[in-house]
Simulated scan of single mutants.
Amino acid sequence: MNEPVDADRDRTAVQAALAEVERRIDAACERAGRDRAGVAVLPVTKTVPPERIAWAIEAGYRTLAENRVQDAAAKAEALADQGVSWHLIGHLQRNKVKQALGFVTCIETLDRENLVERLADQLAARGESREVLMQVNTSGAASQFGVMPEAAAELATVIAKRPELEWKGLMTIGRFSEDPEDTRDCFRTLRRLRDDLQERSGQALPVLSMGMSGDLEVAVEEGATLVRVGSAVFGARG
């Protein structure tokens, strides 16, 4: 008997959390003198069941993000009638590329040449293309994936040669810290690297995917166009 009440309460909580994230971004844009329309929220659904994801979709968020291919595949199937698109934001293994291409619209984690080639070859065989971002390890942490900044130009050349890859920009994960200010240099490094790669290649790279629940304000102040938010929307992961 309590399930409808609980569902209504959960819907309200998720949608209120999304509104609070939007408010935080509004404030950061105002401080930075940025156009608010230039920053999008990407809800991250890691560990979140489809019935809770539906509350975000209902609120108008139709581009979602997942970390693991197998989890994303199941959720994409469960929500297939909702008209949503999916970004893959976790480390992609080469043997998962074929499965990912069945539903993912953007892969944010290109970070090595053999993955670029496998992805592009699979797309060529399908007669398709996909949006991609290059993941850069701006923190220097050994625990984080991503090409190192000094090697990014070389990888960019490999990506740019493959017409199957619609290269839109860069992605990074900030330094893990309780103080959001500790991540500022990571985000600034990504923005400067993007600017340098644009100048070298003559190609527009409009997307900077950076910032998460705890440091999104700093990311927006440093130029983020796509903010990946999970726990601030759906609560702490179990």
Rank of each mutant, 00 (worst) to 15 (best):
I159H: 00
H87C: 04
L197R: 08
Q82C: 12
R62M: 05
C106N: 15
Q82E: 15
A7E: 13
A151N: 13
G90H: 02
R112D: 07
S177I: 05
P206E: 10
V39C: 14
F176Q: 13
Q122P: 03
G38C: 08
S143A: 14
D26M: 11
R9H: 12
D35W: 03
L115V: 00
A80L: 07
V158Y: 00
A151M: 10
E150G: 08
R112K: 13
A236H: 11
A37C: 09
A76H: 12
F187Y: 11
R200L: 13
E66M: 02
Q135D: 05
D111F: 08
F145E: 14
G38N: 10
P206F: 09
M148Q: 15
R192T: 15
G127V: 00
E222C: 12
K96S: 01
V44K: 04
C29N: 10
I89D: 06
A160Y: 01
D81G: 07
L101V: 03
P206N: 06
R52S: 06
G90K: 02
A232P: 01
G174C: 03
N67M: 01
G202H: 04
S85E: 15
R31T: 01
S213G: 07
V104K: 09
D179C: 06
L133T: 11
D26H: 13
H87V: 04
E66H: 01
L170I: 01
P149V: 01
G174F: 00
A219I: 02
F103D: 01
S209W: 07
F176E: 11
G235R: 01
D215W: 00
D196L: 15
V233L: 14
V132G: 04
G214R: 13
E221W: 09
K75P: 02
S201N: 11
G90V: 03
A28H: 04
D182L: 07
V21T: 14
E66V: 04
A219S: 08
V116R: 09
G230Y: 03
R162W: 05
G60D: 08
M212P: 03
R23E: 12
V69T: 04
I173V: 14
G140E: 02
V5P: 02
A124K: 13
R130C: 12
E221P: 07
E20K: 15
G238M: 10
Q82T: 04
R130S: 08
G230W: 03
D81M: 01
R130G: 06
R31G: 06
L79E: 09
R191C: 06
L92P: 02
R24Q: 12
E199I: 15
A28S: 10
G202K: 09
M148A: 14
L226C: 06
D81F: 00
D185G: 15
G140W: 00
D71Q: 12
G223R: 09
Q82D: 14
M210D: 01
T63R: 14
A124I: 00
V41T: 08
K98T: 15
G127P: 00
L115N: 03
E58R: 09
A27D: 12
T172M: 04
A125E: 13
E117V: 15
G211C: 07
E117Q: 13
S177T: 08
E108G: 11
A156D: 06
A16T: 11
L92V: 01
P50G: 08
E58W: 00
A160N: 07
V104C: 10
M134G: 04
V41L: 10
